[in-house]
């Protein structure tokens, strides 16, 4: 395995909902290196989504350590996490989650523009380049709502790459696509992983999709079983 990009040690996540406390992650250990493409497998309720959410700095663990790029992120302040997330982590969701009132290009450029507070010409150029790369150069100025499901997911991938993150977290990225679109999206992710220094952690139920990743991590009951 290459040099560690993220290192998770004894990660615990407990949800306290009234009297019922549920522990979803139970002392999980995990390392992912740079340039890796990792599939995260496991049955529903095994804690995959919770792990992705914590790794994406959208949620804090109850205890344990989460380091990325050498920085301890567990317990960091929201403002610092927001800036870190913007610069180093990309997301691809199952339901694309594009901004509906924006064009494809505007959606892609958003992470950079939100950071700078303006839409720089260089960012628009990179956004256009990314859309070209995912095969949507001719849909650049289409409103997000006018795109097909597969096209929306490709826009979401371009958006995830906008700020050249070291890590892209993909939660069932093909779960809502037909076979052809799913294959196209996975080809794209594989190509980007091969050509750029971006690691991918892909949560999936689909063994075929997982099979396209160089490494598979299986989660069972809040812990990593294999990987």
């Amino acid at each position: 395995m290459s040099a560690p990009l993220i290192e998770v040690r004894q990660l615990v996540k407990r949800f306290d909902e009234g009297e019922a406390a549920v522990t979803v992650l139970k002392g999980l250990d995990l390392s992912i290196g740079t340039h890796e493409m990792v599939a995260l497998l496991g049955p529903s309720g095994s804690g995959k989504s919770t792990l992705l959410t914590i790794l994406g700095t959208l949620m804090q663990p109850t205890s344990g350590s989460y380091r990325m790029l050498g920085l301890e992120l567990a317990g960091a302040k929201d403002r610092a996490l927001t800036e870190f997330r913007n610069s180093h982590i990309g997301f691809v969701f199952q339901f694309h989650h594009l901004l509906p009132d924006f064009t494809a290009l505007e959606n892609v450029v958003f992470p950079a523009a939100a950071r700078r507070g303006r839409e720089a010409a260089a960012d628009r150029a990179r956004g256009a380049e990314l859309l070209d790369r995912v095969g949507l150069a001719d849909r650049m100025h289409f409103p997000a709502t006018k795109l097909s499901g597969g096209q929306k997911q490709r826009v979401a991938i371009a958006r995830a790459l906008m700020n050249q993150p070291e890590l892209v977290l993909a939660d069932e990225p093909t779960g809502n696509l037909d076979r052809e679109s799913a294959s196209y999206v996975m080809d794209l992710i594989t190509e980007i992983n091969r050509e750029e220094a971006t690691s991918f952690l892909i949560s999936t139920h689909d063994e075929t999709i997982a099979g396209r990743c160089k490494r598979q991590i299986r989660m069972v009951d809040g812990q990593v079983q294999t990987g």
Binding site: L58, H97, F110, A114, N163
Partner: peptide
Amino acid sequence: IMRAMGAS
């Protein structure tokens, strides 16, 4: 979504 994309 904006917050997830790193909007403060």
